[in-house]
Design a binder for these strands. Structure first.
Lengths: 108, 108
DNA sequence: AGTTATACCTAGCATTACTAGGCTTAAGGA
DNA sequence: TCCTTAAGCCTAGTAATGCTAGGTATAACT
């Protein structure tokens, strides 16, 4: 359904989903599905490389956590740079969406 | 400014810009710039290959026109299939934008 | 013991917009 | 006349990025 419209916006989605929490990859996928109202059901092959990319870019930090039951998880949280980037990307999205809305003649 | 967020939405932008008119490439670029309120200033290297792609896909039809003054222009208009596709893409955009808005926590 | 859900990962692919060039014709100024 | 600028079209190659399809491991449930 969300073929590849997401291109260029995935980073914002990931940063916003993690927000002030510390989430692991699998939980992020579920959170995106829930928060988007089912619009986005992203495969692991999309999420994991993207998280690595964002960590490499210094926007995310990760640590391994061993929960009481279950296997080890890699948990991600925003760095200061990531928080700043999220603010920018939110503004960027609004600007972009406004532009598209105008051209498509939708949503006033 | 519109780095490559556009990915996956350019086709909708082109179809909507042409709409019920018959426009040539150069005019399309200017129309997008105007209608988007300056948000999108797309280079020719983006527009022309995209128009060819859409024509190949049967969503656009083109013909050469010789205006009184000036050189020949290639003028594009929507096919029936293109009109149908535009309707779908408009709906697709709204669905997509709603999903992103929810995740980003912006625009209600 | 086998299946399912959780949880992580990667190589390779396909799509797509952009960069950077090139070509032609007409108009306007020096 | 010559030169520059704008209008107008095009393409080869590049870079980015999300997805497909595969693999691995652990825990819980049947």
């Amino acid at each position: 359904m969300s073929a590849e419209m997401l291109k260029g916006h995935l980073d914002a989605v990931l940063l916003a989903t993690i927000g002030d929490d510390a989430l692991h990859g699998y939980a992020i996928i579920e959170a995106i599905r829930a928060r988007s109202g089912g619009h986005f059901d992203l495969p692991e092959g999309t999420i994991y490389p993207a998280l690595h990319r964002l960590e490499l870019a210094g926007l995310l930090a990760s640590r391994w956590v061993q929960p009481d039951g279950g296997r080890k998880r890699r948990v991600y949280s925003l760095t200061d740079s990531g928080r700043r980037s999220l603010v920018e990307r939110r503004a960027g999205w609004q600007s972009f969406a406004t532009g598209i809305d105008r051209v498509l003649g939708a949503r006033a």
